[in-house]
């Protein structure tokens, strides 16, 4: 099968690959580029585990063709911490016990990142709405909601 070139930035670093046409971004990230932080829980757009940020928007990488990402800026959960310092959301997830098996966590953190980028001080309902595409089977969601609200508060305190 003829390969097609794709080129984008991943967490700020240039990436280029030749892929089979039709390859999902999830597959390209995990199996070609080696960033396994997006998780394939369903490969059909229902679990949110594969969530990534493409040009500032939350996207399901299992439903995104890699070849449509040429020139894009892609962020994944593995790219959030800087210099070994946890991102406030990561810190809040840790402190609030918002992660158990951890499989949903990268996707949750992606969804929460986009929420806080657009809505720095979300209401509880807005948090629930923003996470509604992400399934967690372990925590019962409440610790995750609390973690996002805590991260939002600590952000706004830092900004003040």
């Amino acid at each position: 099968m003829a390969k097609v070139p794709v080129q984008f930035t991943l967490n700020g670093a240039e990436k280029a690959e030749f892929i089979d046409s039709g390859t999902t971004l999830l597959h390209a990230l995990r199996d070609k580029i080696g960033d396994t932080s997006p998780k394939g829980g369903c490969h059909q757009g229902t679990c949110g585990g594969c969530s990534v940020i493409i040009d500032g928007e939350l996207r399901l990488s299992c439903l995104t063709l890699a070849e449509t990402c040429n020139g894009a800026a892609i962020t994944t959960a593995s790219g959030l911490s800087e210099g070994g310092v946890l991102h406030p959301l990561q810190r809040a997830f840790l402190d609030a016990f918002a992660t158990q098996c951890g499989f949903c966590t990268p996707g949750m953190i992606m969804a929460a990142t986009v929420l806080l980028d657009h809505t720095p001080n979300p209401s509880r309902d807005e948090v629930v709405e923003a996470l509604s595409g992400n399934i967690c089977r372990c925590t019962g969601y409440e610790p995750i909601i609390q973690a996002v609200l805590t991260a939002a508060r600590s952000n706004s305190q830092n900004a003040a």
Binding site: S37, A77, S78, S81, Q90, L94
Partner: peptide
């Protein structure tokens, strides 16, 4: 947990 929140845990 630190591995989970940074996407580094190896499943």
């Amino acid at each position: 947990s630190p591995g989970h929140v940074t996407g580094k845990t190896a499943y």
